[in-house]
Simulated scan of single mutants.
Amino acid sequence: MPSSPFHPDRPALVQRLRAAGCVYAEDEAELLIAAADSPDTLTTLVDRRVGGLPLEHVLGWAEFCGLRVAVDPGVFVPRGRTALLVETAAAVCGPAPAVVDLCCGSGATTVALAARLAPRWLAAVDVDPAAVACARRNLAGRDVAVLQGDLYDPLPVARRGRLDLVVANAPYVPTEAVALMPAEARLHEAPVALDGGADGLAVLRRVAAGAVDWLAPGGHLVVEVSDGQADALCAAMTALGLVPTVVREDEWDATGVLARRPRGSRTGPAVRGVAGRGSGN
């Protein structure tokens, strides 16, 4: 980490951050100091953080899977637990897969997938224009299509039934629970990136239904979900003809579902014309 050209009062800064409710005040203080080039800039950054803005929005970036990813104001901040999706995808994918990252948000998962999987074709989709703009910036210079639209709708028709992997960090917070989320998320991230409907699974059910149509036989769907929702989502996937498995990583407090489209299964009907969204959770 580069040294700061000035000498701020670190203990006072840590105390102010801790008083504002920042659990990792010491770490945040170092990041804010490193991002500032003057006392005035540092004061501005700290004021924004103490005012409740997510640290990643204050800094303009987040770390995800060892990578630094730009995060614009209002865009969903990638969570460390979503690394489970990347690890699970890497474990099941063959060489040079065709991949789509739905609900891509900042594009953090897409960037990580590009590095881990070396896909022959990779696309990222989100319904939120701000997220799409941010993802395009993070994926600039890579051979990745970043598309705006509702889930599978903007994908090229030629890819239908030919995808090896669909990854989705769709919203899964039940509507009534959104108001109980930390203010950082509730006030500074797009509602469309958080609200998963009455039971939190409305969008994930649509992701699963569309995967039946878009995955190649033997292809995989990997999604994030809460531990308490996993069984219900697996039941919905089984009813669609997918073969689901719950995956967990205690270190990250992460739960996901890996589902396979069986070989020899017929392509299902496309999911279209249903209101939905495409940012991550």
Rank of each mutant, 00 (worst) to 15 (best):
A130Q: 06
L32N: 12
D213I: 10
T255E: 05
A230N: 11
L139A: 03
L42P: 05
V212W: 11
E30L: 10
R186D: 02
C22M: 11
G149F: 06
T245H: 15
A114M: 12
E251Y: 09
V86A: 02
A83W: 02
D143Y: 10
S106I: 04
V77P: 03
A254I: 13
D101G: 03
L139F: 13
E176L: 05
A198L: 13
V247C: 10
G52F: 15
R81P: 00
E184V: 06
D253M: 11
L102K: 03
V111A: 13
R162I: 04
G80F: 09
L13W: 02
D213S: 15
A25G: 05
P262I: 08
E249P: 00
L240A: 08
G94R: 06
A198V: 15
Y172G: 01
A83L: 03
C104A: 15
V243P: 00
V125Y: 05
G21S: 11
R136V: 01
A259R: 09
C104E: 09
A112S: 07
V92F: 01
G200A: 11
C234D: 08
P156N: 09
P54I: 14
A145T: 06
L151R: 01
A209C: 11
V92H: 02
V223K: 03
A208C: 08
S279F: 08
L151M: 03
A236M: 11
D195F: 04
T245I: 12
A270F: 04
A133S: 09
D27N: 09
A190G: 05
P2W: 11
P54S: 01
T175S: 15
V167W: 00
A140H: 13
G105D: 09
A211K: 00
A131K: 07
A193F: 07
A254W: 08
L113D: 10
R248C: 05
P174S: 06
H57F: 08
P54Q: 01
L233A: 01
F64Y: 06
I33F: 01
A118Q: 14
G52D: 12
D143K: 09
A140N: 02
G210V: 00
D37R: 14
A90T: 10
P119F: 15
A190D: 15
L139G: 06
V212S: 01
A114I: 12
V71R: 01
V166W: 02
P262T: 04
E56F: 02
L32W: 13
A114R: 13
C234W: 12
V132W: 03
L151Q: 01
D47W: 12
G149Y: 02
V111H: 04
V146M: 00
G141K: 05
P95Y: 08
P95L: 08
V207F: 03
L59V: 07
V167M: 01
V222E: 05
A211V: 01
A29H: 04
P244Y: 12
A259G: 09
